[in-house]
């Protein structure tokens, strides 16, 4: 099953890279969401997969009963998801602001900080 996840991650990465390379920065944002998911899945899969046994300790026991899923990657992924959300929110607001300030979402037209040399006087 890990192999299948690996392929899924490959697809996610490929589509997100394609999206990030687009002219429209909104697509970059979409690509960012996808690739964050891919990175989270990489961490999740690296901790190996266990079906149907959440890492919880039943009342009365001192440790989990039977084989449970690897808890550490789950904690890392949780952290990464929240961080990813923070980054996403900022990036989205940035693009939003870029449109209202620069009047475009096309990155080719965003040349204020680095004007073309021929534009210089």
């Amino acid at each position: 099953m890990e192999a299948l996840i690996a392929i899924t991650i490959g697809v996610l990465v490929a589509t997100s890279v394609y999206l990030m390379l687009a002219r429209n920065v909104l697509r970059f944002i979409f690509g960012l969401v996808l690739i964050s998911n891919a990175a989270n899945l990489i961490i999740f899969a690296s901790g190996r997969l266990t079906v149907g046994a959440p890492p919880l300790i039943p009342v009365g026991a001192d440790g989990p009963v039977g084989d449970v899923a690897n808890a550490l990657p789950q904690a890392l992924v949780l952290t990464a998801i929240v961080i990813g959300f923070g980054l996403f929110a900022f990036a989205l607001v940035l693009m939003f602001r870029a449109y209202s300030t620069l009047g475009t979402l096309y990155s080719d037209d965003m040349r204020i900080a680095e004007p073309r040399t021929e534009d210089k006087t």
Partner: peptide, 16 residues
Amino acid sequence: VVFGSILSIVFAMEEE
């Protein structure tokens, strides 16, 4: 933190 942060982003966006 999570509560306040999300609300400050969403509110600010909404007001725009």
